[in-house]
Computed example of a mutant assay.
Amino acid sequence: MILVTGATGHLGKATIDSLLEKGIQANQISALVREEAKAQDLKAKGVTLKIGDYDDYISLVTAFKDVDKLFLISGTDVVNRSKQQESVIRAAKQIGVKRIYYTSFERKNDTETSPVAFLAESHLYTENLIKASGISYTIFRNNMYLDALPFFVGENFSQTGVFFPAGETKSAFASRRDMAEAVANVLTSEGHDNKTYFISNTENISMREVAEIIGNVTGKPVNYISPTPEVYADALSKADVPAEFVRMLSGTAEAIKQGEFSSEKTDLENLLGRKPTSAKEFLTQFYSKK
């Protein structure tokens, strides 16, 4: 039995869909959800729903019964994520889960000097816990999603341009759908025990190039402006963006600028058995609908 946590999120649903497309029977897939009402689409596909909460250890132990492979999608509660994922790993060990698959992140800097250290801390903590658990594991060092680019670009790009302090540094963004397919391929094959896979695109692209592609797709030139971090944070604050999101966006932009997500090494193409979706392909599809 394969169990997918975070199953109502984008990556969780995409992974389950990929598993089904590969011929895995729905009754061999479980989805960990907090509320059954929010997972009726999964239930309709025949996927078994397991009710569990990262903050409720007993519910996790119950949900993990009969699970052989646990796909742990990192939680979104950054403040409590380390403690929550520790509970997941302890419950998996207690109930006898044979393999854990975890979505970590691509990075160059593991220290507190990283501009995204506040996000990285829980990932590094979880990786170490998994490796020390004695359970066979596979860790996916996922790069930034191509799917996040429209969020960085903003809705008013045609008037304001792309206003994002990432400099000219290139990153190997990859699509969420490709990542989900790669995970499904690993979940349904052998030879992945105690391995770490680098999940990045085969190309690196800058935010200036992103703006150029969007301009070509929409037929209107799109400027790229890389302000100072202070100017960027001030603009977001004046637009009433919550402080937590200002910190996250500013940190992410600085991480991109420092080359945290650039990559010349990737396992994604091999795991997919094809070239990953390029940034141009993704952006063309997304912005041709605008």
Rank of each mutant, 00 (worst) to 15 (best):
Q85G: 07
L72E: 05
A63L: 01
D53F: 06
G46F: 09
V61C: 10
Y54V: 03
V61Y: 04
D77W: 10
G52S: 04
E35S: 13
A63N: 02
A44N: 11
E35I: 06
K38S: 10
K83M: 14
A37L: 10
R81M: 14
K83C: 11
S74C: 10
S59Y: 04
K45G: 07
F71Y: 13
K38T: 07
D56F: 07
L60G: 00
K50W: 04
L42V: 03
A44P: 05
I89Q: 04
R81T: 12
D41C: 06
S87F: 15
I73M: 05
A92H: 04
K43W: 02
D41E: 13
Y57L: 10
G52F: 00
V78D: 13
L70S: 05
R81N: 15
Q84L: 08
Q85R: 11
Q40I: 12
F71H: 04
D53L: 05
F71R: 04
L60H: 02
E86L: 14
A44C: 07
D41A: 12
K69S: 12
V79M: 15
D66N: 14
I73A: 03
V67S: 01
I51D: 02
E36I: 09
G52E: 01
D55K: 14
K43C: 02
D66V: 08
E86V: 11
L60I: 06
V78C: 10
F64T: 00
A63H: 00
A44K: 12
A39C: 05
L60M: 07
T48A: 12
L70Y: 09
Y57W: 08
S82V: 09
V67G: 01
K43H: 06
S82H: 11
Y57V: 04
I73C: 03
K50A: 08
V67L: 03
D53K: 06
G52Q: 01
L60T: 02
K45M: 11
Y57K: 12
L42E: 00
T76Q: 14
A92P: 01
R34S: 02
A63E: 00
K69Q: 15
A37S: 15
D41W: 09
K38Q: 12
T62Y: 05
L42P: 00
K69G: 08
A63Q: 02
I89M: 07
T48K: 13
D55C: 09
T62I: 08
A63S: 06
S59F: 04
T76H: 12
A39T: 03
A39I: 01
V78Q: 13
I58W: 07
L72I: 11
S87D: 14
